[in-house]
Amino acid sequence: MKAPFLFRLCLAVIVTACFTQCSSTPKTRIEKNPQMYGRLSARDQHLVTHGLIHEGMTRDAVFLAWGRPDAVSYGVNRGRESENWTYEGQRPVRSMSMNLGFGYGGFGPWGFGGWGPYGFGGFPYYGGGSTTTYVPYTSGVAEFVNGRVVSWKSTKR
């Protein structure tokens, strides 16, 4: 009787830990980094709380608003060294498929098959349904020069 309860308890703890670790929102990032949030101006604090950024923000503010970037690249923009943070998302793409196949019925009294008077073949299999594939896309880019945002692009959040 104790084993099923212990199993359920362990499973619940693992699932809860996974969901809390995997979900990163501005609120959770602010709670984990209160000193970083406290150093921001009142305007930046308001924007970060809503997951928004603007030109002039620091790297810390962008991290709190959008999270850890998926890719960081370095380059030059108008003669100044720049750093780009790229964020990726995944969009579901649904498609319909139709399949046709033939199976076999096993060994019947009249040879190979088993279905029908002659034991030949099996029955046709018709299948179909929807399939979901997740396609990556760039959801946002923030460009920094001297540690401040100089430009940014984002899909609707």
Rank of each mutant, 00 (worst) to 15 (best):
G114K: 01
R78A: 14
Y104A: 10
S95C: 08
G140W: 01
R80G: 04
R39T: 03
F102W: 11
P69A: 14
F123C: 11
S97L: 11
Y125D: 05
Y137C: 13
V93L: 05
E88P: 00
S41T: 02
R43C: 01
D60E: 07
R29V: 10
G114N: 06
F112C: 13
H54M: 04
W85D: 00
L52A: 14
F123W: 14
S24W: 07
S130V: 05
V48C: 02
Y104V: 01
A71V: 11
S130C: 02
W85P: 01
N84A: 12
S41W: 02
P34C: 03
T131Y: 12
F63K: 11
P69D: 11
P136L: 13
V135Y: 04
C22T: 07
H54E: 12
G121K: 02
G51T: 05
L47H: 07
L100Y: 13
I53W: 06
Y74F: 15
T28A: 09
S97K: 12
F63Q: 12
F112K: 13
S24F: 04
R39H: 03
T16Y: 12
Y125P: 04
L64F: 09
S82W: 09
Y74T: 03
Q21Y: 13
T28R: 14
G119A: 12
T131A: 10
R29C: 08
P109R: 05
P26D: 04
K32D: 09
T16G: 13
N77S: 12
P124W: 01
T25I: 04
W85N: 02
Y126H: 02
G140S: 10
T49P: 04
G89V: 11
W110E: 12
G79R: 09
L100R: 06
R94V: 15
K27G: 10
D70P: 01
A17D: 10
Y37N: 09
T58V: 00
Y37R: 08
S23T: 15
V93G: 00
R39Q: 05
Y137I: 13
G128D: 03
S24G: 05
T20F: 13
F112H: 13
H54G: 07
L47C: 07
A71E: 10
G79T: 01
T49A: 10
V76T: 14
V76F: 07
M96K: 09
A61V: 05
L100G: 11
G127C: 05
G128H: 06
G129Y: 02
Q90C: 14
A42Y: 00
R94G: 09
A17F: 15
R39A: 01
T131N: 10
E83C: 04
G56F: 00
M96H: 13
G105Q: 05
F112W: 13
G111D: 10
G67H: 04
T131I: 11
G119Y: 11
P117S: 13
W110H: 15
I30K: 07
P124L: 08
T25C: 08
T132G: 13
W66L: 15
N77K: 09
